[in-house]
Design a protein around this nucleic acid. Sequence first.
DNA 1: ACCTTTGCATACTCCGAGTATGTCCTGTCA
DNA 2: TGACAGGACATACTCGGAGTATGCAAAGGT
Lengths: 197, 197
Amino acid sequence: MSPRTQAARTEATTGQLLTAARELFGRDGYTATSIDAVAAAAGLTKGAAYHHFTTKGALFRAVFVGEQDRVAAELTRTTAEQTDPFAALRRGCRTFLELCLDPAFRQIALLDGPAVLGWQEVRSIQSERALRLLADGMLVAAAAAGEPDADVSARSHLAFGALCEAGMLLARADDPDTALLAVLTEAERLVDALARP
Amino acid sequence: MSPRTQAARTEATTGQLLTAARELFGRDGYTATSIDAVAAAAGLTKGAAYHHFTTKGALFRAVFVGEQDRVAAELTRTTAEQTDPFAALRRGCRTFLELCLDPAFRQIALLDGPAVLGWQEVRSIQSERALRLLADGMLVAAAAAGEPDADVSARSHLAFGALCEAGMLLARADDPDTALLAVLTEAERLVDALARP
DNA sequence: ACCTTTGCATACTCCGAGTATGTCCTGTCA
DNA sequence: TGACAGGACATACTCGGAGTATGCAAAGGT
């Protein structure tokens, strides 16, 4: 069971650490989660965690980046088949909100992320992922609407902020599906309105 | 100098604690600020702080509520003279973004607030303040646009999220004024588009 | 077969949140 | 006006968790 090579060992342990960390950070939040608890949940000790991650914040950052990667992957996957740029934007909204149905995702990506990593850091991580996809989509939409070189930078940021808030609105809902529908229509309206100049 | 009556004493000390806390929380962030540091900055000791606030989170909550009160007061003040509902909404955007020019405000209200207090708590505090004002404004605007009983609840939340993100966009700006203008036009566009059905 | 490097554990230090306790001041009632 | 009850604040703790130092065993090169 235990891997022979060093590279395989590190990959296995970091993987277990990240899985456990995502679990605990997502359930209890960043500050309420100790490194000891994460290591124990991964069947390891604190020493292993600090061997692979310089600090607690670094471990969280890795988890956060993992979530952002998932978001970007899901977005590219679900919007790939959309031909109409506005339909693609709406589909992206739906995909993002569906991810936000997971409380752990909300806790990590929307609540703790900015506070722990700082705004600049979070932005720079997202700028290469979901935010880039959103900006690209809005650029295409603006071009289709007759304004080829619109400045979509600020615009996509505002839309992203609105979507994050929309995602948090799903938290208190008794029935996720109906709540998703209600919020989704408003979100689509907003993005639609923003995308056309 | 030292006040005679007990009520005056508590008010003076809590006031000093709140002032110092707003200063340090706003500059260094919540986790990087210790109760000792706040008490020392207020010319007191930890004991005084814990006498008036049950926990560090409670102290932060008081600071946070104070900021939200300021926001609501500024909003009502600046939008009072606006007769056109859409103009009032635009004026509200400007007021909020001007408040966001203060890094301490951004740190407390936008970054640490949700992570420390939790989303539900932050929302319930804002629901009686800025969020209520925004929803009211959007309701009036919707009525003026011919849809008297629109459901502005989700809509105002999304707009609020967009405005918060807009406020954070002001952080990295070299020249605050021009950045404010650039973001403001986009924000006004968004709120305008959202407010009309 | 050595020797170095790397993965991980154990055993610390240190700082900060929260608690216990003591002291002084204030307001009240005799 | 003088004792006493309660509130304001300080000092002296405890305790948990982040980060560090050190030790040891498994890998991998020579």
